[in-house]
């Protein structure tokens, strides 16, 4: 075997070994990423309208708290998560209604209505929103989200349980 031949044979072996390693890494690596992020690629099917309150019970001008649960099938388990919000009747007109989410836009703590301060207070990082959900002070970057709603003939407030962010 001549010297140059020997070197090329060695190089061939090195190259083949590297190629095999790369091939196996790729065939394992690419599906692995899809495997790991798989749950993030599923579309969220939550969104059946739920009835959360009757307008009869909701006072005008004061936020009325409500909550509802959404059951999601997460893998082998079904999880019921509770969400909350406030119904605000701006006037006696049944159409003049705003449904706010109680999820603080800063880091998802739940805000409470504070009568004295006349605003929604977030207990986590001292933030405050006004009655329409606009930021008064504190770290939240945007106003409270809201839910799309409908009011049926009997005055039931029916919301689509997908929070819509402002701005």
């Amino acid at each position: 075997m001549s010297g140059s031949n020997h070197i090329s044979r060695r190089d061939f072996m090195k190259l083949t070994t590297g190629a095999i390693g790369g091939f196996i890494a790729a065939v394992i690596g690419i599906p692995s990423i899809a495997y790991l992020i798989s749950p993030a690629l599923r579309e969220d099917k939550a969104g059946k309208p739920v009835s959360v309150a009757n307008l009869e019970n909701v006072p005008v001008g004061k936020p009325y708290p409500f909550s509802f649960t959404v059951t999601r099938v997460n893998g082998w388990e079904r999880t019921s998560t509770a969400y909350g919000g406030f119904i605000l009747r701006r006037s006696a007109d049944p159409a003049d209604v705003l449904v706010l989410s109680s999820r603080c836009t800063h880091l998802s703590c739940r805000v409470n209505w504070n009568d004295e301060a006349a605003g929604f207070v977030c207990p986590c990082h001292d933030a405050m929103f006004d009655i329409e959900g606009k930021v008064l002070y504190g770290p939240p970057p945007e106003p409270l989200g809201h839910f799309e709603h409908e009011i049926d003939g009997e005055g039931n407030v029916i919301i689509t349980p997908v929070e819509i962010k402002e701005g």
Binding site: R10, M13, K14, T16, T17, I20, G21, F23, I24, V27
Partner: peptide
Amino acid sequence: FWPDSIYKDAIVALGIFLLLV
């Protein structure tokens, strides 16, 4: 050992891998 033995090992590994897939 490198590359003579590892070369053979790599070919066997490839065979096993393809078999598994």
